[in-house]
């Protein structure tokens, strides 16, 4: 048998290459690119060592001031918490409803160019406004209250969900689309039987994911008078004697968010994998750890 002699038995005489310069330069540029702004920022924020040193103690004072939490206003807190969840729910519904067609319009494999570009621009412009700022603007026409919060969250959700939906749609396998087109299907038929069946589980999973985020956001909107539990917490933190009540509100919020996250994660997992969790224990573990390996379950939280 003959094999080309690619590896001569002696060690070949081979010139060692010089270490290239570019990676080193990049390395140092990145290091300084992080370090210099950091030092500038730290200096600007007047973060003195003594304040850094004092911070953990101050945080501890606050935490110990919150415990034991005072649950005497439980009913009132629950009402506020529910209001926050309602606002998030309605906001998510608004977002889902309007982002669905918007997602199709922004998907380059479905829509014509002249429609994709402006839709994307609009969605991206909507996303640029945080919910809180939208809420401030909406207070003027709609007044104080949860309605304003739902509108703000809904509008912001249209922006984020629209982007995610269009990405899902762009990611579908175009084989079925081609097949439907080849058998004479119209654009509507291609969407209905080619795109929707493929994309829908992921899109619904994103709706649920957005709901989780919106619960956090709506808990916060109370600060500007848009309803919810946020205002309770802030108000209670103003006076030291109220700190246990703030602690109670905070704990309620965290528990609610954890429960909603766990439930939503379990549903999302089922939607995407089609498999129920194996056992109550594993479900519980999932709830505790929030671990999901499937990348589709962990959307970009923008």
């Amino acid at each position: 048998m003959t094999v080309p002699d690619l590896a001569p038995d002696a060690i070949p005489d081979m010139a060692r290459p010089a270490e290239p310069l570019a990676p080193k330069v990049i390395k140092w540029a990145v290091t300084f690119g992080i370090l210099i702004p950091f030092i500038w920022a730290v200096a600007g924020l007047e973060v003195s060592p003594s304040r850094m040193w004092a911070a953990p103690g101050q945080v501890w004072v606050l935490i110990s001031g919150m415990f034991p939490p005072d649950f005497t206003e439980m009913g009132r807190l629950m009402t506020k918490l529910l209001e926050s969840i309602y606002v998030a729910w309605i906001g998510t519904l608004i977002g889902a409803m309007f982002s669905f067609p918007a997602g199709f319009m922004a998907a380059a494999n479905i829509s014509p160019r002249w429609l994709v570009a402006p839709t994307r621009a609009i969605l991206s412009a909507i996303r640029a406004f945080p919910e809180l700022i939208l809420a401030i603007i909406f207070i003027v026409p709609f007044g104080l209250g949860p309605f304003t919060g739902a509108m703000a969250i809904g509008l912001h959700s249209i922006g984020t969900l629209g982007k995610l939906t269009s990405e899902v749609i762009e990611g579908v396998d175009d084989g079925p689309l081609e097949a439907i087109g080849a058998s004479g299907g119209t654009t509507m038929l291609r969407m209905r039987f080619g795109v929707v069946p493929q994309a829908m589980p992921n899109i619904v999973a994103y709706w649920l994911y957005r709901f989780e985020i919106n619960v956090r956001a709506s808990a916060v909107l109370g600060l500007v008078g848009a309803g919810g539990i946020g205002a309770e917490i802030v108000a209670r933190l103003r006076f030291r004697g109220d700190w246990p009540k703030a602690g109670a509100a905070l704990i309620l919020t965290i528990v609610a968010v954890l429960v909603i996250d766990a439930a939503s994660a379990a549903i999302r997992r089922r939607i995407i994998t089609g498999q129920p969790s194996q056992s109550p224990i594993s479900k519980w573990m999932t709830a505790i750890t929030g671990s999901h390996r499937d990348p589709r379950l962990t959307a970009d939280p923008s």
């Binding site: 956001a217 808990a219 933190l237 919020t253 968010v257």
Partner: peptide
């Protein structure tokens, strides 16, 4: 992760 950013701000 559970605690929203604004709550951290209030807290600190």
């Amino acid at each position: 992760r559970t605690i929203p950013d604004l709550f951290w701000a209030v807290f600190f």
